[in-house]
Design a protein around this nucleic acid. Structure first.
Lengths: 369, 369
DNA sequence: CCTAGGATTGAGACCGGACTCACAGCGATG
DNA sequence: CATCGCTGTGAGTCCGGTCTCAATCCTAGG
């Protein structure tokens, strides 16, 4: 008969209480399942609630419990499957534990991250999972940490901040991958990353990203072990849009000192790098060897299938969420969040063609500059 | 000197008011930038706020404004780049307009969707963007709509629900794509989708997804136009995990009545279908033609590059967010949200090899059953 | 039959802002 | 000089729950 009557205002405990002919306090107790409530009252309240199709206002509830049952997730770009997967891991665990996720993209921009964190804090999220855009400039994260709000870093560290971090041992896997390339005879290995920097890379320069810094460290270590000089000139940062990545790729692949192997720092870069290589008429791995970070399913579909560094991204999301929830519940941290990446050798790394000049040079559509 | 003193409880307007030696009301006015406040008071309040590093509690604010400045986004799976992109479009617009996004995955499960919508409503989101798991079973969405809460559908329609919907004209593009295949001589065209159904596909059966229904309608239309019989036996639903997709692919590609072209309903399916085709030792497009929905960057990297149906997913996200915001602000709906997909002809569709039996059959690793 | 102690119950404070309302201050108007 | 009108201001209510506290009910022990 009734049921659909509610329109203007939401039904509140007070309404339910009135309908059940009990006090607001009793209704709230019955609804919230706390305190002492007689069977009789409980039934009447529940029936009334059902009848009025009462739904608690989580906002109001949050306000005086102090818990919003919401966690904020701050990532670079949800469009990147890397973060898509991680986010999926996070949301899966969060949902299971009764938490919701507010998602914010930063485009790896620190200002956007500062803003994101502030907004999330204003919304009183119970905790934060952040993929810090910078491992150096972390004042805002420092404040969050000091205020005691639960926080976990994912994917990258926050510099010297003692915050639980879920990431892979980048230096290790980079070392391994570089060894692999060195073993194949490569000496001129290029590394292309989107990481923004004010100047071209020089050995020892301070990098904003711990992740990239670790990868480069791993590479240098491998060259050091092999007693070979590290080709710092082939480390290219600021690889932004598709055009700039292509042009960088062409740059490192031409001239007498060209690279014989290219490492792409992430899946997005990889796409443009491979395209550029194809456009140059070079073949993988005969002319150029190729290696990329992240094992996306499509990397098995190319010809040849690509050799990649697989990162357990989904599981990292899961671990980050679990760690955060643990923190929020006041439990001590469990296992440390160091994950292991693996080198998946498929077909894109081959033996280095000895000194044979590539057929690049003149004819190719090379960018001006 | 002070500044870092706040620890236990958050700083509230009352605290600021006290510090600025004005009433709570005045402080609130100065902070909230409303009502009449003298320059003197404003300055004192702002200074005090700064000093105490006051931050408004959005929860409290939401509670009596009724607006949470949050929109709920309910998608099938954020891990799927299709939704990743759409979500990116949504969050970009939302952020610009001052809204946050709470994200929920449903795995295309109706029960999960019902739950998601309920939770979001309890959190008092200002509006919802939903990719309905089912276009048939929409009782829960019906309720939301009736309650007057702003809502926009993305990607699929909600059946007979008169809710603003941002989607592509699937029947049209499917018609076009099918014509393309028919023109190439294909008559046995398979269509593989994850859509869950209780029984194998039969013409005219009720489908849960308007999207898939429209695609099939487009296909049938094309066959009808050409005066050819529609191969309903090659429409395969319930393609779940990688293994089942592979086995379905093998099924449709073997036997005397095998398909000469395969259409993959989304990027995830496509990966497994192409893998299965490669495993069978068949080549695209010489032995089998292939077409997929969604133009992901990697589809240009395979050999041959894949012919795809490009959907403006990011822009659809943008449009959905804009439409929702418009609704939330009480403005009349703007342009209708019909988007156009385009057929991107690359290299995976070729001429149908006349009746020549494929080298599939016996030796291949075909699933038991 | 009387009373201590646990189970119930209702009134009301409180969370942290937004907003209503009554009132004071003050220059302009008549 | 009284009135009007507008800016400033403080007290207090309200949003919709949670939670404290004191009062009331009920039942077993003495």
């Amino acid at each position: 008969m009734s049921g659909e009557g509610a329109r203007r205002r939401d039904v509140t405990v007070a309404d339910v209480a009135k309908a059940a002919q009990v006090s607001k306090a009793q209704a709230a107790r019955a609804l919230g399942n706390y305190g002492a409530v007689s069977e009789d009252v409980r039934e009447r309240v529940l029936a009334a609630a059902e009848e009025l199709s009462y739904r608690p206002n989580e906002l109001a509830r949050s306000m005086n419990t102090g818990k919003s049952h919401t966690i904020g997730v701050v990532v670079g770009d949800i469009e990147n499957p890397h973060f898509g997967l991680a986010t999926r891991g996070i949301t899966d665990i969060a949902k299971r534990a009764g938490y919701n996720v507010i998602l914010v993209n930063t485009d790896e921009d620190r200002a956007a991250e500062v803003d994101a964190v502030r907004v999330l804090l204003d919304k009183r999220v119970d905790g934060l999972i952040v993929a810090p855009a910078s491992s150096v400039n972390t004042g805002h994260l420092h404040q969050v940490h000091q205020s005691g709000r639960p926080m976990v870093f994912i994917d990258r560290s926050g510099g010297d901040l003692e915050v639980e971090t879920v990431a892979v041992d980048m230096a290790r896997i980079s070392l391994e991958a570089t060894r692999h390339l060195l073993d194949a005879g490569h000496r001129r290995i290029a590394f292309i990353s989107t990481l923004r920097a004010d100047s071209p890379y020089t050995p020892g320069m301070a990098l904003d990203s711990s992740q990239i810094a670790d990868r480069l460290e791993g590479m240098q270590q491998a060259f050091l072990e092999a007693g070979l000089p590290f080709p710092a000139d082939l480390v290219r940062l600021n690889a932004g849009d598709s055009d700039s990545i292509r042009s960088i790729t062409r740059e490192v692949l031409r001239g007498p000192e060209q690279a014989t192997a290219v490492v792409a720092s992430d899946g997005l870069i990889a796409l443009s790098v491979v395209e550029a290589i194809q456009e140059l008429g070079l073949s993988i791995p005969a002319d150029v060897s190729f290696l990329m970070y992240d094992d996306f399913p499509w990397t098995r579909l190319t010809t040849p299938p690509l050799t990649v560094i697989a990162q357990p991204v989904y599981n990292m999301g899961v671990a980050a969420a679990k760690a955060l929830i643990r923190q929020m519940e006041g439990l001590p941290p469990a296992t440390p969040g160091q994950f292991t990446a693996t080198l998946v050798r498929r077909g894109s790394v081959g033996a280095c063609r000895p000194a044979l000049a590539h057929p690049v040079a003149a004819g190719s559509p090379v960018a001006a500059e």
